[in-house]
């Protein structure tokens, strides 16, 4: 299916009192895609690549994109429950699960709750656990450094990936700012992790692929390996010339690797 012909549908679905923005594209076995803290942009190149093979389901997490954010919601675990309810509303039983960065964290929370319904799990630069020493952040504090330094950590090619608010619409800037605010709300303390999660991951026993960009300065190779090790059937993959978001910097390579894993993993 070419980029031009795949059909993308945007709906708003009421879940737990939240107006949830949900994108759907393509046909086939369902694939729940959980976006990163940057949010989801339907113009991203990876979208048609996945939609060509799957029924791609991409909710904007509460507080991201155009999804509402209720007062009571302040954790990734809360979001996992929202997305479980979304799956029920969409009539999805068994599905493949892909999560990027904090989306990986939410994916892990979901997978610990319903491991039997997740067919395959792909984690792209996932966060959500703490494995290193007490006196060193596993994940650098991107809020406590100049934006340019954070961009260097997060991108293989920061210049190419740079967003310029002055060339974006007011709507786009508003979404970007709100995404960042919600990201802070959800990740501030404990920093980027749920201390309980790593003690639950042994139940996540479907085949799992842990991916990171070779230039990712946020999620280190050691962190990814330690994360993967907590799951019974996980392996790791590195994608060259990509940072924390290989789905944005190397969409074709990433899509091929993940789809290959989803199709063929034993």
């Amino acid at each position: 299916m070419s980029r031009e012909t795949f059909c993308l549908k945007t709906t708003t679905i009421k879940i737990a009192g939240i107006d949830l923005e949900v994108f759907e594209a393509g046909e086939g076995a369902p694939l729940l895609w959980l976006h990163s803290g940057q949010g989801f942009n339907l113009k991203d190149e990876f979208v048609p690549l996945f939609a060509a093979h799957r029924r791609l389901i991409v909710p904007s997490h509460p507080g991201f994109g155009r999804s509402g954010l209720p007062d009571w919601l302040d954790s990734m675990d809360d979001i996992a429950h929202v997305h479980l309810e979304l799956l029920a509303a969409l009539g999805v039983d068994s599905f493949d699960l892909v999560g990027c960065s904090i989306g990986g964290w939410i994916a892990a929370e979901i997978a610990t709750k319903i491991p039997e319904r997740v067919r395959r799990l792909a984690m792209i630069g996932p966060v959500g656990i703490k494995v290193g020493p007490t006196d060193k952040l596993d994940l650098p504090d991107i809020f406590a450094m100049p934006q340019e330094e954070a961009n260097k950590l997060l991108r293989h090619d920061p210049e190419r990936m740079k967003l310029d608010p002055r060339t974006m619409s007011e709507d786009e800037v508003t979404i970007m700012v709100r995404n960042r605010e919600t990201l802070a709300l959800l990740t501030w303390e404990p920093w980027m992790h749920n201390p309980k999660l790593k003690h639950r991951l042994h139940r996540v026993n479907m085949p799992a692929l842990f991916v990171r960009g070779a230039s990712d300065g946020f999620v280190s190779a050691e962190y990814l390996a330690a994360y993967a090790k907590l799951l019974p059937k996980a392996r790791t993959l590195t994608i060259d010339e990509a940072g924390h978001a290989p789905h944005l910097e190397q969409p074709a390579v990433l899509a091929e690797a993940v789809l290959e894993f989803l199709e063929r993993a034993p």
């Binding site: 809020f143 100049p146 007011e170 800037v173 802070a184």
Partner: peptide, 20 residues
């Protein structure tokens, strides 16, 4: 700026104006 304006301290609308 990263100490003077952490995310969420001022409203989304104010941050949008500042970015512009």
């Amino acid at each position: 700026p990263h100490f003077a304006n952490p995310p969420g301290y001022v409203s989304v609308a104010t941050n949008v104006q500042m970015l512009r």
